[in-house]
């Protein structure tokens, strides 16, 4: 097993196809480009915020095949053939927010907004598990993302309110006051 295989690999560019927010995108990337930089610089998805670039702050969180991951800790080439979701997938129109975004606004779950795209995506993931969480459990679930502004309480409230809306939406009738007509489980 001493055949030389290195020659087939290089330091340069690779063509990747990534499903980004539901659309296949094909681009040339440098193999050392992180997924975060690829999304921000090549695809203009600037909701992907870079706080630390070494896996501490969580502000660069995206959903990779539906799972939350830190996009500064992946290379763009590694996303080849995978699906990436950023917060832009929820709503591109400020007049028509996704119920999770609505809840963050209503509950003042943000101040400067730096952590918010990550928090919103993580909220989506939490809600999709279908489990009803206590406030303490929500705090545990969002502990991978640092917020320097809110003190977290309003984020916890936003997660709970969004979760109530979306669970009601999914369950149909018979929900409490939090339910509104348009909370139908979100656009995926």
């Amino acid at each position: 097993m001493t055949t030389s295989t290195g020659s087939k690999y290089g330091t340069g560019q690779r063509t990747v196809t990534v499903r980004v927010n539901g659309r296949d995108v094909t681009r040339e990337v440098s193999t050392r480009t992180t997924l975060a930089d690829f999304l921000r610089d090549d695809l203009d998805l600037v909701s992907v915020h870079l706080g630390c670039e070494h896996g501490v702050c969580g502000c660069c969180t995206i959903l990779l095949d539906g799972h939350s991951v830190r996009s500064c800790l992946m290379l763009a080439v590694q996303a080849d053939g995978h699906a990436v979701e950023t917060v832009e997938s929820l709503s591109g129109n400020p007049a028509e927010l996704h119920p999770i975004q609505e809840s963050f606004a209503e509950e003042q779950g943000l101040q400067c907004g730096f952590c918010t795209p990550a928090m919103v995506l993580r909220t989506k993931e939490i809600i999709e598990t279908g489990r009803e969480l206590t406030d303490a459990e929500v705090r545990h679930e969002i502990s991978g993302i640092l917020c320097r502004c809110t003190g977290y309480q309003n984020i916890v409230n936003a997660v709970q309110s969004a979760s109530a809306k979306l669970r009601c939406g999914a369950a149909g009738a018979g929900c409490g006051a939090a339910a509104t007509d348009d909370s139908t489980g979100g656009r995926h």
């Binding site: 295989t5 690999y9 330091t11 193999t31 050392r32 930089d37 670039e53 070494h54």
Partner: peptide, 25 residues
């Protein structure tokens, strides 16, 4: 805060990964 340049290898078998490890050590 960006990775330095490297040769990026993404083998699809253990044998190939070992061959690469043997080559670059």
């Amino acid at each position: 805060m960006k990775p330095p340049a490297f040769t990026y290898c993404d083998p699809d078998s253990v044998d190939e990964a070992v061959a690469l490890k043997n080559e670059y050590g």
